[in-house]
Amino acid sequence: MTEEIIIAGFGGQGVLSMGKIMAYSAMMQDMEVSWMPSYGPEMRGGTANVIVIISSDRISSPIVRNFDTAIILNQQSLDKFENAVKPGGVLIYDGNGITRHPERKDITIYRVDAAEEAGKMNSPKTFNMIVLGGFLKVKPLIKLENVIKGLKKSLPERYHNLIPMNEKALERGREIIKKV
């Protein structure tokens, strides 16, 4: 089993930390993981993306151009990565701010309106966990308990009181994600 994932959006949306939590939690399940961020001018200018690979075998290239799953959180990223999804692959996107929706017919497209939901829940920072919850509904690669362990590992201790809120967000993501 190998799952090659790209997560792409604006800096500040929690793109990199979502990837980190995925990698941590997959590691808890004895999987091989790699987390390759975009760094430098891209990150400083606003857009951020990270390639996460989860595999039962040794990971060869940490950098790939085609993905099993693309998690897309803004229009620029959709324009850039829609065609990078492998035929038969999965594209998950947040509809917030999207003017041109994904059009491919040879992949499965899901929509998770996490920004809107995070607003309703009055906790905008759990946005990325809503998205992650949605992803795990579609691709149940990692157990929820390991995601919580991953959260504990990657969040500084002073934020550990926020974990129940994040758990709720993960659950909400599972509920609201829908096939397009």
């Binding site: 790699s34 390759m36 961020p37 940490p62 950098i63």
Partner: peptide, 10 residues
């Protein structure tokens, strides 16, 4: 190189 320096693995 920058890729191995910046990426995370086990």
């Amino acid at each position: 190189d920058g890729a191995i320096g910046q990426m995370m693995e086990k």
